[in-house]
């Protein structure tokens, strides 16, 4: 069962009221990324530096002279959020040592979309993980290049229609399965990897807090529904994120020191159709394609469950 339903006594008083990602930003109505970042910064607190990649978040949050950021923020380019964060992290370490910076713990975040992470930024990300910088990489995944107008990325799921993988007479849209970024991150043997979604705020906040408290690199993969690019109604952003979890399309899990743990395990998953049906990007799909998507999702889900079971057995 999804976490919030298990906890009817949702207690907002436990969550910081400070809005470090400001109201008045230019995100679309119902933007899943803006929501994710707002929640994540509540876990991060003000002693945080954000290194943003180019993309939706950067554009909506920083049209001069307006900024949505109430924490120090730097945007350099598209493919190098992790490299910039490497420099910031190294600088703060040495400056602290030389007594030239606050002695407090500073959370360093590299923030990028799925394109900035799984495509153009993958090399910088891999390098920074391998070098073991003490930072948190956050991928807000809306499954395409939304900022430039909904072009496919390697994180676009099978069957989704985008402007560069359009569904047509000869095409079902995206013909390849979604690149498994969290597992690529985990393959660097970093201490903390988690998938999360702002539809599960308590889960997201807890994972963000864990990531920030991890010594060394951590990775959060945040599914961020996008009404504009996924072509769903803006009020469904949270619902669709929830359906992604409830159908197993986007399982919530953590990999702590290499051990995988499922966070929300459903006895009975909803059929993927429930998730697909609200979204215009999947509207063209026929029963065969939906069946294929169900097969892909089932297989990956079972594999995750088995892995979780195996990893649990190692703990005994």
């Amino acid at each position: 069962m999804p976490q919030e339903k298990q906890h009817p006594g949702f207690i907002p008083r436990l969550i910081s009221p400070r809005e470090l990602f400001a109201e008045g930003n230019r995100g679309c109505q119902g933007c899943g990324e803006a929501l994710a970042i707002r929640q994540i910064l509540k876990a991060a607190g003000p002693d945080t530096i954000v290194c943003s990649a180019t993309g939706c978040v950067e554009i909506i949050s920083s049209p001069y002279p307006e900024t949505a950021w109430r924490v120090p923020w730097i945007h350099v380019a598209f493919e190098n959020a992790a490299a910039v964060a490497s420099g910031v992290e190294a600088a703060i370490k040495i400056l602290k040592k030389r007594g030239r910076y606050h002695d407090r713990k500073i959370n360093i975040i590299a923030l990028a979309g799925d394109g900035g992470t799984a495509d153009i930024g993958l090399q910088a990300l891999s390098g920074a993980f391998e070098r073991r910088h003490d930072f948190t990489y956050i991928c807000t995944d809306n499954e395409a290049y939304m900022n430039t107008g909904i072009q496919r990325s390697s994180a676009t799921p099978y069957g989704a229609s985008t402007t560069t993988s359009p569904a047509g007479k000869e095409s079902i849209g995206q013909t390849t399965p979604k690149k498994d970024m969290p597992m690529i991150a985990a393959a660097h043997d970093i201490p903390y990897v988690a998938t999360c979604c702002p539809s599960y705020p308590m889960d997201l906040l807890a994972k963000a807090a864990k990531a920030f408290n991890t010594e060394g690199p951590s990775y959060l993969h945040v599914l961020s529904p996008c009404p504009t690019g996924w072509r769903h109604e803006s009020h469904l952003t949270v619902e669709i994120g929830r359906l992604a979890v409830e159908t197993g399309v986007f399982p919530l899990y953590e990999i702590i020191e290499g051990r995988l743990k499922m966070n929300v395990v459903m006895e009975k998953r909803k059929p993927v159709k429930e998730y697909l049906k609200h979204q215009g990007r999947f509207r063209h799909l026929g029963p065969d394609e939906i069946e294929e998507i169900q097969r892909i999702v089932d297989e990956k889900y079972v594999r995750l469950l088995r892995r979780a079971e195996f990893d649990r057995s190692l703990e005994r």
């Binding site: 490299a83 420099g87 910031v88 600088a91 030239r100 090399q123 910088a124 390098g127």
Partner: peptide
């Protein structure tokens, strides 16, 4: 030399890291 030496994975990242480090206030 008491400095942080980052052996990056490309020159693109070398300059990116220098930019990040300089922005954080370090001589890079």
């Amino acid at each position: 030399l008491d400095a942080k030496f980052i052996m990056v994975e490309s020159e693109h990242s070398a300059m990116s890291a220098c930019i990040g480090a300089a922005a954080a206030g370090a001589r890079s």
